[in-house]
Design a binder for these strands. Sequence first.
DNA 1: CAAATTTGTGTCTTTATGACACTTTCCTGT
DNA 2: ACAGGAAAGTGTCATAAAGACACAAATTTG
Lengths: 232, 232
Amino acid sequence: MTKPYNINDFKNPLFTVDSVLFTVKEGRLQVLMVRRANEPFIHQWGLPGGFVDVDIDQSTDETALRKLKEKTSVAPQYLEQLQAFSSAYRDPRGFSVTLVYYALVAEQEVSCHIDTVDDAKWVDLEELDDLAVAFDHRFIIEQAQHRLQQKALYSMVPVYCLPELFTIAQLKSVIEVIIGKEIQRKSLIRRIDASEMFEALDEKVKSGGRLAQVYKVKPDVDIAHFERNLSM
Amino acid sequence: MTKPYNINDFKNPLFTVDSVLFTVKEGRLQVLMVRRANEPFIHQWGLPGGFVDVDIDQSTDETALRKLKEKTSVAPQYLEQLQAFSSAYRDPRGFSVTLVYYALVAEQEVSCHIDTVDDAKWVDLEELDDLAVAFDHRFIIEQAQHRLQQKALYSMVPVYCLPELFTIAQLKSVIEVIIGKEIQRKSLIRRIDASEMFEALDEKVKSGGRLAQVYKVKPDVDIAHFERNLSM
DNA sequence: CAAATTTGTGTCTTTATGACACTTTCCTGT
DNA sequence: ACAGGAAAGTGTCATAAAGACACAAATTTG
């Protein structure tokens, strides 16, 4: 296989795809971490990801999805590119680039599978400091969290941390966990109405109090975005 | 050179870095395009960019800057990652990934240099359809334009299309060119005050009318962001 | 059946932008 | 020199969406 166009091919940078998979579990924001089976940073914890398989993947999106499915057995409800991180020193093997995605799932969708394996687990973002984290993945997770927080202020993205059917209180809760601050229930209701991306179904009981309306995301709708941020 | 960790190294994807360099010239948004000297798409027009040189570049940011300097002789005033574009088919040589940056410069900074070379030129975005464009660069430029438009609605980023000293009218004009719509002068003034990122200097004459206040960006300030979008 | 609790509604306040009139300053032409 | 035009800059009211909060409705628990 000749490569006539690129004389530098022999020193191409290392290129990987990693994902920061978030969920909200027990009222806290969690990230999926996997134990590394290979050098470098063997036995430390890192983000799920790896090399593109050019025979299987049609794009890096598919690489990210494939790697996430390997670890969780399901596709995340939301997946979007965060950004690439690169440096000559972040990997001891040399110049490396990792294209990072961030993703959301409902905890119920994956935890039953996660609990059966011991090379993958949910890590509470508050407890990440206690973990031996590979590469610059701690920094990457911070960046992903920041982006997710921003998105939560002007879009309905956090709904993808919830199961198919959910209540306003549940949506309010995941938003609050993501942005780390209480929001006005009334403001959320106004946005739910204005977004037109949800469908009201029938009731469901919740702790004390009146029955709560159950919603689902309408099929094939776009994620609603708003002109204004919620205040922080 | 052994690569014990990565058995797929021999079919690593092609990895390049490209930039969409914008400026506002003659009241229109323009992009820097360069004539390709190599296959594939030789002699067609594409984005400035190329392969990482791992002996020179410390990161992909530096790759983007290096390639832009080669074509314009100066560093852009603003540079930020857009996103990676990848597919098995976007390059005839096989699976390829291009990490795309978008950048802004004042037209005055570079046009004198651009005009001396014939393998690089400013292309009016409205006239891009008439050009033979390599790869998926036309699509990429559209994405970059969209991102720039969004940024212009909630940040002061467009100021980096202007020279060091500028007036409110000039800033208003570049914003309007970028978003393709008139904005309220008053709203812009309010944002200039609130941002605290500018310094007022002394006067300067403009077409008819009263002398306009000249501003410059304070040294080392962060780009101001606003909680609310300008309306579209 | 009363108290507690959560859902859902009504409405007033707050804040930044949109719209637009009005004043100020400077240039130009006669 | 002066009138008129033109752009710069200010003042202010309207608008829109979020914040704050009271209150009513529905359901569970003791």
